[in-house]
Design a protein around this nucleic acid. Structure first.
Length: 355
DNA sequence: TAGGCCATCTGGTCCT
DNA sequence: AGGACCAGATGGCCTA
């Protein structure tokens, strides 16, 4: 069952690691597009920079094919200096070297574009995906690794994993902003992902779990510190604590929220010290006082949600808070549901979880 | 201004 | 020989 999961996730990782082999089709098309406009600009740039290093390049030993090379080397046999022989830099040789370097630069650009393309594909299959606030490269790789590991654990154990450990696994080694994002995503997802759903699909119950899910993202007190803010990363900047239009596999549309949902919110999940694992751990009265809930929730109007839940905005919430106070659709307004091709995978996971 | 992230250039190395 | 890959250097952009 979950093998399909791997069939979807692993190819992307494999592509990432072995993207070099994919040099046809889309990649070649990208190559055409990228090299066209880039070449002019970048080659000029390259020329400008090349001035200082061109001679070095020539001395490094390329252009061995040059006819006059042999003669010159022979002529320099009597020279005192060992090492690479200096060859006369004829205009033709300079031009050839320049062209060769330009071609190499173009290839390198294409290679990096392909790599970035593969990274984008990978971003789409890891638990959090947002068009506007991309995870950084390194965070994408870390999250992907954790995700694969977590899925592997599910396969190995063949049972429903503990929610907290699942989140912890996913967030292992991630930066705090990314951890916040992922944990927030999963909190939302977990409503679909980890809860039992009544036939009408409107009510949720979390059996035997200290983790009760709610549509609010949670900001741990520690996360109020500037360095914990998603804004510390360019691609994770949003006015809504880094959720932007994030797509969370398996997430339920905010509009799907049950009206009586508010009764479920409890202590949020704390991962890697960013979130509290349980009310016992993070739910001391003092701590509770410091809970900051960002209203990443469009099911209710901000005013209503605030009234119902009596939630305070954190630092990031301050930004979104103003928006909410103005009844501007909360952060999830631009969050679209999972790309459709991914949904079945999570449905499978749901089946696993629910059986 | 510092720091993070990124794109690009570049030279070296390895492989076919 | 040429291409792929890699890592270092550099500069731009952005935010705190």
């Amino acid at each position: 069952m979950l093998t399909r999961l791997f069939s979807e996730v692993l190819p992307d990782v494999q592509k990432l690691s072995g993207w070099v082999e994919n040099s046809e089709g889309e990649d070649s098309k990208t190559k055409e597009e990228d090299m066209g406009p880039l070449q002019d600009d970048d080659l000029d740039d390259g020329d400008a920079r090349e001035g200082g290093s061109r001679d070095q390049s020539e001395m490094a030993g390329d252009d061995v094919d040059d006819e006059d090379c042999g003669d010159e080397n022979e002529g320099e046999d009597t020279a005192e200096k060992p090492g690479p022989k200096k060859r006369k830099m004829t205009p033709a040789r300079i031009e050839r070297s320049k062209v060769r370097r330009q071609k190499a630069n173009a290839r390198e650009r294409t290679r990096m574009h392909d790599l970035n393309s593969a990274l984008d594909n990978l971003r789409k299959v890891v638990p959090c995906y947002s068009k506007t606030q991309k995870l950084s490269k390194i965070e994408t790789l870390r999250l992907a690794k954790n995700y694969i590991w977590a899925l592997g654990e599910i396969l190995r154990n063949g049972k429903r994993p503990d929610v907290v450990s699942y989140v912890q696994t996913l967030c292992k080694g991630l930066s705090q902003p990314t951890t916040n994002l992922v944990a927030g995503c999963l909190q939302l997802n977990s409503r679909n992902f980890l809860t039992e759903q009544c036939p009408d699909g409107a009510r949720f119950h979390v059996p035997n779990s200290s983790f009760s899910v709610h549509p609010y993202s949670y900001q741990c007190p520690r996360l109020s510190s500037p360095q914990c803010q998603p804004g510390s990363s360019r691609h994770m900047r949003t006015h809504n604590y880094g959720y932007g239009d994030a797509v969370y596999p398996g997430a339920i549309s905010p509009e799907y929220d049950s009206p009586d949902y508010g009764g479920h919110h409890s202590s949020p999940v704390c991962v890697n010290g960013n979130f509290s694992v349980s009310q016992q751990e993070c739910g001391s009265p003092d701590t509770d006082m410091n809970y900051h809930y960002a209203m990443h929730y469009s099911g209710l109007s901000a005013s209503r949600a605030t009234a119902v839940h009596g939630l305070a905005f954190g630092t990031s919430g301050a930004r979104s808070g103003s928006a909410h106070s103005e009844n501007v659709p909360p952060p999830f307004h631009d969050m679209h549901l999972l790309h459709h091709d991914r949904t079945p995978v999570y449905e499978e996971l749901n089946v696993l979880y629910h059986n």
